[in-house]
Every structure is written in structure tokens, then in C-alpha cells.
């Protein structure tokens, strides 16, 4: 099976760098800050594949580079080095196997809009809080060239129904909504153009436990229905256990262990993963 999304050697450095940064940082050196020049290597030489319909988890403590990976994949940040291929995007662009990081901002934005959906931890990043919930979904559809208000509203209400947001509040701005509801509007927005890849960046962090459970339930049922390949980033092992089939463990910007989620949670090999699994409350 060919991977839907392939990442090779993804590196993001904040700071000028000195040439020795890669040797002086990483999980073995116990730091992501180069002691010589002070540059931060938020993620270093990260490589992985995501297969169609698969749910892949990325777990690690804060500062381990999980969110940086997601932002790089969503083109929110420019990488220092690395290759990024998306099977569906290649087919649409007409040529095989192009590195998406080498494309123009215009092409990248098109690919992002057509093939990717993202849900951020903070709804402020993913939503326009002053624009109505329906408008937030409409924005993505408008970007994709929809020009019929009636059909846009039909699709938006269909998505809001799927994500269990009361339709009566479709034309209200999300700043009036609770945190859980904002998150569900974000999910609806991410799903609006039927993306091939869904990126979930700490979706349940900051929600209370019962709302967390609801959002996770929703994500699981959507996953069952739609079968979108999903990347789940979380520091919460419960979320990883519930949603993912395969997991990557990151520390200091590096992948230190990967494998089936059950295996990693039941029989962790790396000392850090063991610590992580054992420190679950």
C-alpha cells in the first residue's frame, strides 16, 4: 500500500544555527536548544508515513515538537529542511511525487484548502470568532470556489448537524459558544471540503472531562463514517488510546519510538515512553 502522506527528514530550526546544532541536540543530548548558538530545533529529521484511512498519533511532552510538525504539515510554518509528499495532491497537480515544500505559496494554499483540514487546540486559531458559525464553514467552501449561498448553507447545516451543533445557532458567532461547541464548529469547518487528511492538534486539551468525552465520541464516529486519514497530536495518552491505531513518541524534537498504539501503551521500550505511560494518573 502506498502512503497517502509521506514526510522525510522534516527539520525546523528557530534561530540562525551554527552547523553543529544537529549534533548537539536531540533526545540523547536531553535538549532541543543548541548549547553553542542557542538555536531551538523544534523538530529534527522527523520521518513518517500516513496511510489512507489510518489514524496516527503523535504523543510527547510539551516542547517535544508535536505541534510544530502539524503546523509544518499545514504550511503554517516554513520548514528548515525536509520533504513532504501527498499522494492525492500529486494526482491533482498532474505530476507524481513532488515535494510540497518546494511549491509556491499559492499552490500550497490550494492544496491545503482542497486536501487538508485542521483542528487547533485553541479555536481562536481555527475560527473567526466574530463571523457566524455558518460563515466559518462557508469561508472554506468559498475558498474552494462555491458561489451559491443556498448550497453553501445546505452543506454548512449538514456539517453542523453531523458535529451536533444546534442548527438554530448557525448564524451566531462562535464567540458566544462554549469551548466544546467552538471545537465542534472547528471540526465541521475542517471537514467541509471533504479533505483527504485531517490534522488534530490537541483537540481536547482545555475542555472539561465530559465535554472531552463528547468530542472524542464525535471524532470516533466521524472517523468510522468518513474514514479520513487522521493525524492526532496529543499529550494525553487516553486520547491516543481511544483514537489511534499507530503511535509516534517524540521527545526533544525527535522520534524516539513508534509502533502500534496498543503495543506502545502496554509494552513501551524507550525509557521515556515507559515514564510517560507510568505517569498516567
Amino acid at each position: 500500500m502506498t502512503p497517502l502522506l509521506a514526510v522525510r527528514g522534516l527539520t525546523k530550526r528557530f534561530g540562525a544555527g551554527c552547523g553543529e546544532c544537529l549534533d548537539r541536540t536531540g533526545a540523547l543530548r536531553e535538549t532541543n536548544r543548541c548549547p553553542r548558538c542557542g538555536a531551538i530545533l523544534a523538530c529534527r529529521e522527523v520521518s513518517f508515513d500516513l496511510y489512507p484511512g489510518e489514524v496516527l498519533g503523535i504523543v510527547g511532552e510539551s516542547g517535544s515538537g508535536k505541534s510544530t510538525v502539524v503546523r509544518l504539515l499545514h504550511f503554517d510554518l516554513e520548514p528548515t529542511a525536509g520533504e513532504y509528499r501527498l499522494a492525492v495532491a500529486d494526482a491533482a497537480a498532474g505530476g507524481g511525487g513532488r515535494n510540497l515544500f518546494a511549491l509556491s505559496p499559492f499552490q500550497r494554499r490550494r492544496i491545503r484548502n482542497e486536501h487538508m483540514g485542521i483542528v487547533y487546540q485553541n479555536p481562536r486559531l481555527g475560527l473567526r470568532l466574530k463571523v457566524s458559525a455558518g460563515g466559518n464553514i462557508a469561508e472554506r467552501l468559498l475558498m474552494a470556489g462555491w458561489r451559491h449561498v443556498g448550497r453553501i448553507r445546505e452543506r454548512a447545516s449538514e456539517l453542523l448537524r453531523q458535529t451536533e451543533v444546534p442548527l438554530a445557532r448557525m448564524d451566531e458567532p462562535p464567540r458566544n459558544f462554549s469551548g466544546g461547541m467552538q471545537q465542534r464548529v472547528q471540526i465541521a469547518k475542517a471537514l467541509s471540503t471533504r479533505p483527504a487528511v485531517l490534522l488534530l492538534d490537541e483537540v481536547t486539551t482545555g475542555l472539561d472531562v465530559s465535554v472531552q468525552a463528547k468530542v472524542l465520541d464525535l471524532l470516533r464516529s466521524l472517523q468510522r463514517e468518513l474514514g479520513i486519514a487522521t493525524l492526532v497530536v496529543s499529550h494525553d495518552l487516553g486520547v491516543i488510546r481511544l483514537l489511534t491505531s499507530r503511535t509516534i513518541v517524540m521527545r526533544h524534537g525527535e522520534i524516539i519510538e513508534q509502533g502500534l498504539s496498543d503495543q506502545i501503551l502496554e509494552d513501551p521500550q524507550h525509557p521515556y515512553t515507559q515514564l510517560l505511560v507510568n505517569s498516567v494518573l
Binding site: R109, R128, A138, V149, I152, R153
Partner: peptide
């Protein structure tokens, strides 16, 4: 300027959509 360079006019369309909704 970035929006013009990339022909990214969805925000303007969104403004008109919101106008119609309201």
C-alpha cells in the same frame, strides 16, 4: 498585498456571505 498576490479573495466573499445571512 499577499492576498492580491495569491488571488486569495475568500475573506471578501465571506463578508458578502455574512451580509446576506444577516
Amino acid at each position: 498585498r499577499r492576498m492580491h498576490a495569491e488571488a486569495d479573495y475568500s475573506r471578501m466573499w465571506l463578508y458578502l456571505y455574512e451580509d446576506i445571512v444577516r
